[in-house]
């Protein structure tokens, strides 16, 4: 084999390697999951901000809440509609998880689908499983 062939083979291997995640997932496409709401969440109608907004920005809100609570001792959130909320991920009934107590159905479903693994639950204690 001359140099040219080696180079071309190398390039092909490199290309396949680069696009491996794409090949790997080919044919496994599953429908976009819908997170399930608990009854409590359904009853509340709206989260701290409108649903569409939460869908896209919940990580930013969580980030800001986190810095606010941990670093500045700010614990009250007033939404754009003027409603008050307790800023907490997992402490008490008026926290995020107080409402969304079905982590597996609510958080994990989409996170698994999009292969993101936030490390929240390495420290924050998950709501007990049996609650639906």
């Amino acid at each position: 084999m001359n140099d040219k062939n080696i180079i071309i083979t190398g390039l092909i291997i490199f290309f396949v390697f680069l696009t491996f995640p794409f090949w790997y997932n080919l044919g496994k496409a599953s429908p976009v999951p819908e997170p399930k709401l608990t009854d409590k969440a359904k009853a509340a109608k709206e989260c701290v901000e409108p649903k569409e907004y939460m869908k896209v920005e919940h990580m930013q809100i969580l980030d800001i809440w986190r810095d606010g609570v941990v670093r500045e001792a700010n614990r009250v959130y007033i939404s754009k509609k003027g409603k008050r909320f307790n800023m907490s991920l997992s402490t008490g009934d008026d926290s995020c998880m107080g409402c969304h107590s079905n982590k597996a159905e609510f958080c994990d479903k989409c996170h698994d689908y999009t292969s993101v693994t936030p490390y929240c639950w390495d420290c924050h204690i998950e709501p007990p499983k049996e609650k639906k």
Binding site: I64, W65, N74, V76, I78, K80
Partner: peptide
Amino acid sequence: SEAHGEKHGPEIFPNQEA
């Protein structure tokens, strides 16, 4: 920056009882 559009921007505060 939101003032002209909506009544409130989101705000965060300390707890009153802190």
